[in-house]
């Protein structure tokens, strides 16, 4: 069974006086396997939060259907096994951290000893122990985010849905969340999280989905999406005579970059590389390194998303 499966899932809002239709998500076919970390990427306003709300039952789809752990979203049996962190979570400010977690613990049906154990354990893991007895109105944004993660994990969930879990965190906090995601995976849980911070996704995800303008434009392992295809090849050489350098200009993708004594030359593909190497060897230049450079997710993202966003 897949952890998440959607079939032509779509959501339209009706806004304004004339109830004009706005499509925020259309024809979403998403598959998340059990036990994997799935990164859900997309620019702001692509429909990531809408998807997560559809999966948790906060919104109802206008078309298509979704199954979470084999059950319809919003189903109580499903909710018992799912943890959810909304985007920029907001909690009852008049409660202390401990009271809030205790409240959620009761809602997920934990008995008193289990609640205490879980709250202590998660507070330690997420480093909010010292703030547990403070009222939430005194929490910083990062602390609220950690508390949000704690409440999502209280019920020992099989599937964790996180909306922008790294937002609002400092670099150390982000690093810790990355660690947490990997730990959740090693415990056999499925993690589905949205983000627009690509390096975060690239480091921890088994598979990713890329959402642009309400449509899923790619889905699969990062390697498959980016392809084994090489974006460019960097050659480091030295003792290249200036006149040869001037002739080589047409082969290069970007201008040569001096690195001390050496030069960094970037070419587009293997054919250009072969020609460059021949010329360099001919003039007795020294070649120090040849490094194929694969496209990063970020570069892919910018290349893919930009032309669609700016018509």
């Amino acid at each position: 069974m897949n952890a998440i499966e959607t079939e032509k899932l779509g959501k339209e809002y009706r806004i304004g006086f004339w109830r004009k239709r706005i499509c925020v998500l259309s024809q979403l076919d998403l598959t998340v396997h059990e036990g994997e970390v799935f990164g859900y990427l997309g620019p702001n306003g692509a429909g990531k939060t809408t998807t997560l709300k559809l999966l948790t039952g906060l919104l109802r789809p206008t078309s298509g259907k979704a199954k979470v752990l084999g059950r319809p979203p919003g189903d109580v049996v499903m909710q018992q096994q799912v943890g959810f962190l909304p985007e920029q979570p907001s909690f009852y400010e008049y409660l202390t951290g401990r009271e809030l977690l205790n409240f959620y613990g009761q809602l997920v049906g934990l008995d008193r000893p289990t609640r205490r154990e879980q709250i202590e354990g998660l507070a330690r893991q997420l480093r909010i122990e010292s703030a547990l007895d403070l009222q939430l109105r005194k929490y910083s944004k990062g602390m609220l985010q950690r508390l949000g993660l704690a409440q999502a994990l209280l019920n020992d969930p099989r599937l964790v849905l996180l909306d922008e879990p790294m937002s609002g965190l400092d670099p150390i906090g982000r690093w810790e969340v990355r660690d947490l995601l990997l730990r959740l995976k090693s415990e056999g849980r499925t993690v589905f999280f949205s983000s627009h911070i690509i390096p975060d996704v690239e480091m921890v995800c088994d598979r990713v989905g890329i959402l642009v303008g309400g449509r899923l434009v790619a889905q699969g392992p990062i390697d498959d999406i980016l392809g084994a295809q090489i974006a460019s090849i960097e050659v480091t050489a030295s003792q290249v005579p200036p006149e040869v350098m001037a002739e080589l200009g047409y082969l290069l993708v970007t201008q040569s970059v001096p690195r001390g004594e050496r030069l960094l030359l970037t070419v587009k593909d293997e054919a250009a590389l072969a020609e460059l190497l021949t010329r360099l060897l001919d003039c007795k230049a020294t070649i120090h390194a040849i490094a194929p450079h694969r496209e990063s997710l970020e570069e892919y993202f910018i290349r893919y998303v930009q032309p669609r966003e700016t018509p």
Binding site: L58, Q79, V82, F84, P86, S90, Y104, L107, Q151
Partner: peptide, 14 residues
């Protein structure tokens, strides 16, 4: 309005 119910409605509660 304050979005406090997101984390409650998504818990196992009708």
């Amino acid at each position: 309005e304050k979005r406090t119910l997101y984390t409650i409605i998504s818990k196992p509660i009708h």
